[in-house]
Amino acid sequence: MLKRRIIPCLDVKAGRVVKGVSFVDHRDAGDPVVLAAHYNDSGADELVFYDITASSDERNIMVDVVERTAAQVFIPLTVGGGIRTVDDMYRMLRAGADKISINTAAVLNPQLISDGAKRFGSQCIVLSIDVRRVQDSVGAPQWQVYTHTGANARSTGIDAVAWAIRGAELGAGELVINSMDADGTYGGYDIALLQTITSQIGIPVIASGGAGTPEHLYDGFVRGGADAVLAASIFHFGNYTIAEVKADLHNRGLAMR
């Protein structure tokens, strides 16, 4: 039986992990390679590095980080952030990434999804969608796509569900659905958003944004229909270990590795 996946996400800037990872008692706790190895040893099913670097010089550092990680950590590694062209994808894949996550660049140029899928296969292309909830005229929830992750996020006016469906049609192999409303709240995933998308999509969906407890992850899987969950703070700050969360979900009847 296919297992539900737990995927820690590390924000990397100029070769160092930011958003402090506070549970690792190690002088190199900011080293993405050290943390990747740590998460691998503690049962992570995959890893995501998100490059929040602004300049292209610093992006070369990311290539080096990916290379050093791939030489030591033998589980799937996704790299996102600042990837705008098929050549950018190629560099990261050669460096050892298994998948490429694209977000803003795909909204600005949807053909990037199909070009990437044609050249490297759909399994390489993860479409990450930042979403904010809005209300329609009768008060039913709607969701809009945002670009430029972070403090400068911009509304696009694009319907998130329609964009998710289009992304799958263009050849994305997986979707990350990140609720900006829930992100950082520790209040749980946006389950209605996940349900709306997973019920209409035939490719794996990864829930992101809002996880604070194992129960939230359970809800993301069971009520939201997610195949995997992306989580950062819940693990980085040592509130839970991956092993604890997996044991809890296993006890609730989910198939975990």
């Binding site: 296919l2 297992k3 996946r5 195949d227």
Partner: peptide
């Protein structure tokens, strides 16, 4: 078959 999520992605026994 189209009834399954395709691709299969993840850990399986």
């Amino acid at each position: 078959p189209a009834t399954l999520k395709v691709p299969q992605i993840g850990w399986n026994q």
